[in-house]
Design a protein around this nucleic acid. Sequence first.
DNA 1: CAGCTTATGACACTGAGTGTCTTTATGGAA
DNA 2: TTCCATAAAGACACTCAGTGTCATAAGCTG
Lengths: 204, 204
Amino acid sequence: MPTVEPATRSTGRPVTIDPESVARVAMELFSRDGYENTSMEDIARAAGIGRKSLYRYFATKADLVWGGTEPAVEASVVQLEAGAAGRADDPLSALRQSVVAGAAALPDLAVTRARLRLIGTHRDLLNRSYEALGSQRDVTLEHLKAAGVPAATARYACAAFIGATFQAWLEWAAGNDPDPAPYLEAATAVVRLPQGHGSVGKQL
Amino acid sequence: MPTVEPATRSTGRPVTIDPESVARVAMELFSRDGYENTSMEDIARAAGIGRKSLYRYFATKADLVWGGTEPAVEASVVQLEAGAAGRADDPLSALRQSVVAGAAALPDLAVTRARLRLIGTHRDLLNRSYEALGSQRDVTLEHLKAAGVPAATARYACAAFIGATFQAWLEWAAGNDPDPAPYLEAATAVVRLPQGHGSVGKQL
DNA sequence: CAGCTTATGACACTGAGTGTCTTTATGGAA
DNA sequence: TTCCATAAAGACACTCAGTGTCATAAGCTG
């Protein structure tokens, strides 16, 4: 099985393609010529690789855009784990803070904005949101369940939280405000845990 | 422009294709052979029409599945308008009730369940949710704004509401409980309007 | 019947995504 | 150093979704 363990691998032909730079090339073409006017063939040629090789690193065209959002998820996970030990107000506050802090930890907000603007203006990319937000959904749900929120409530709150957060990101990207924090805070404020929320019991 | 005003149209070749029955045929094929194993060509052939004609009524393969969810949206809109004149607790309660009542007004829950099960188990169909829930999003947002909820809050609450509701529908469909109401009620309960909610002013 | 209008479909094309097989490049064993 | 196992890279061919163009069928109105 390829594409696993980039660490302990000393045999076989070495990797020559850098996915990051390929994605960067693709984003440039998308910006210059438009998303739909740029074919996978165009991208492969511009990146100096074969079309099939391109598909080996990016299973779909949308992944060239959405792939760059992984750091945001990872950043929020880091923030979540860091804050998990510390004060645990209530599960949603922790999530809210981790999303905001994760956004602040992103290396280049300009790139993030460009990416989200592209997403926000293309049917295909918007539609990928359900799938693309999967890992964010996973960690969010995990956190809520770990905090003792009943499973069903956790799933609904998770879905609501992800939906509102994505909306916030899109709105921030569409405008020109430098800081996404106010958007994320306002958006996540619409989610609540009804009745027995909090880290009280482990009612499944 | 075709496909408008199905009413006052007395000239030209009459319609012979019934989109409803075509969609029904498609759903049967999807159930029997699987969504990805059924091509648009297969559907056209089974429906006794040309492939291009099929595309005239269903722009995408996913529309053959998602198209059937329109009645649910329309039903909830009817409920919303009916209740709008009556008691207006708060904007979210009205939405909650309209969704539940809309579900109860659906003619055939078994078909709805089959459809949602198909959606819930296919990447492609799940991804279409963003686009497919657009009209539901529109009416929801409209209601909130009409109720005087600040626009930004309304958009976030709307996104959260739609996300939670969709999750509820998927979970109901995956199980065997006859009534979706409890799912919808529990899901929509996680959304709230922070601070100055309610039909007090018309702050834009 | 003539002509207008609209539904249907035949044909051809682009491009996404996939499977198979070949080639290339490296580290390690003989 | 030579050969071999291993894995990256790409060439090739294919399926199918979705689109555009154009021809034809079938009603209605005059």
